[in-house]
């Protein structure tokens, strides 16, 4: 793992996330949201979890970001620009960040570098999903089906 790549990815991800959280125009914020997930997926690649990084790109940029853009377009009359920013959230977010960072830096046992590890292949992930994780996999499939049917029922036009 290389330090320069890590710093570059971290700055890119956090800048895009901050833009997504603070930009006034909704569409720009949605596109920055997608960029933040590109950065996050590249940090997964850096950590050696290529499959999860690709799943993140497919799910978040391919599905969730597109869903957000569609929702923005469907509720357009209201969202030309976002009115108001509640400044009360800033001290809370800064306090959470400060407290967690302080406790991370105080904990000496996690100041370690990555051990050498054999590369994780997709074959291993598939074998684990189909053997020890087969019940959770079925449950997640059921949950996704139920959630998508529920979302459809929520937005279906009511007949008067």
């Amino acid at each position: 793992m290389n330090s320069g790549a890590f710093i570059l990815i971290a700055i890119f991800t956090l800048a895009a996330a901050l833009a997504a959280a603070t930009l006034r125009k909704l569409m720009h914020a949605a596109l920055s949201f997608a960029l933040a997930f590109v950065g996050l997926a590249s940090s997964f690649f850096l950590l050696g979890a290529e499959f999860v990084g690709l799943a993140l790109v497919f799910v978040y940029i391919g599905a969730v970001a597109v869903l957000i853009v569609f929702t923005i377009l469907l509720t357009r009359r209201d969202v030309e620009k976002d009115r108001g920013f509640n400044w009360g959230g800033v001290p809370i977010a800064v306090a959470v960040f400060g407290g967690l960072t302080w406790s991370i830096l105080k904990t000496q046992s996690i100041a370690i570098v990555a051990p050498r590890m054999p590369a994780l292949t997709v074959k291993q992930i598939g074998a684990a999903l189909m053997t020890s994780y087969v019940w959770p996999l079925q449950c997640v499939g059921l949950l996704l089906t139920a959630a998508l049917i529920g979302a459809l029922i929520l937005v279906i036009e009511e007949k008067r």
Binding site: M1, N2, S3, F6, A10, T13, L14, A17, L18, A20, A21, T22, A36, L40, S43, L47, D82, F85, N86, W87, G88, G89, V90, I92, A93, V94, V96, F97, L100, T101, I104, L105, T107, I110, A111, I112, V113, A114
Partner: peptide, 25 residues
């Protein structure tokens, strides 16, 4: 090379930015 702490701090920062977006928008 980056330590575990560096990754945890990045993830804390991302969490705080998400909290900021959820609380103040």
């Amino acid at each position: 090379t980056p330590t575990l702490q560096a990754f945890l701090i990045v993830s804390t920062a991302l969490f705080s930015i998400g909290l900021l977006a959820a609380l103040s928008r």
